[in-house]
């Protein structure tokens, strides 16, 4: 039994731990968004949820033993001064894939603006209901239902 579990961890969890991390984070976020009663806690859940996806994207751009995708001085020198073909100098496997990271810049912007808007709206809700607890708000809405 122990042996089996160890094998499972070795095969499925260790090499794919980035996926496990994002899935666990995402589930925490989802859980908070759906079950929490306080609107701000829901938003915290939402932030965790979005961050989990950002982590996922960022992690898929990474390769073993790769660095940041910026040309160093040597490479620059080789291409510009020595006139070597850039495809020879720039080794793909030496650089992390920049595209997912760039995508995530946009996703972060989107996430921040969503969060900002949601906070603004919860401020309005607090202004008119004097509470941020969902059940109390619903209680206020129930009897009259006047608007």
């Amino acid at each position: 039994m122990e042996f089996l579990a160890a094998g499972f961890i070795e095969e499925n969890i260790v090499p794919k731990f980035n996926y496990w991390v994002y899935v666990i984070l995402m589930m925490i976020g989802l859980f908070a968004m759906i079950t929490k009663n306080n609107l701000i806690k829901k938003l915290i859940g939402m932030a965790i949820f979005q961050t989990a996806i950002i982590l996922f994207y960022v992690s898929i751009g990474v390769k073993a033993e790769s660095g940041i995708p910026i040309l160093g001085h040597e490479q620059h020198h080789e291409i510009v001064e020595e006139g070597r073909a850039s495809s020879e100098v720039i080794k793909k496997e030496k650089f992390a894939n920049p595209l997912p990271h760039v995508l995530m810049l946009t996703a972060i912007v989107v996430g921040v603006s969503t969060l900002g808007l949601a906070l603004a709206i919860s401020q309005r809700i607090y202004g008119s209901f004097n509470t941020l607890e969902e059940d109390e708000i619903l209680d206020q809405l129930r009897p009259g239902g006047h608007d």
Binding site: M46, I53, I60, A118, S122, L141
Partner: peptide, 27 residues
Amino acid sequence: NRRAALSSFNYIIMGTIGASFYLLGVG
């Protein structure tokens, strides 16, 4: 009105979940 604000909040929660799932799929 104030109900609209609350509905909008719920929409944000659901909408974000939906869009994030889409984003994951694209990943």
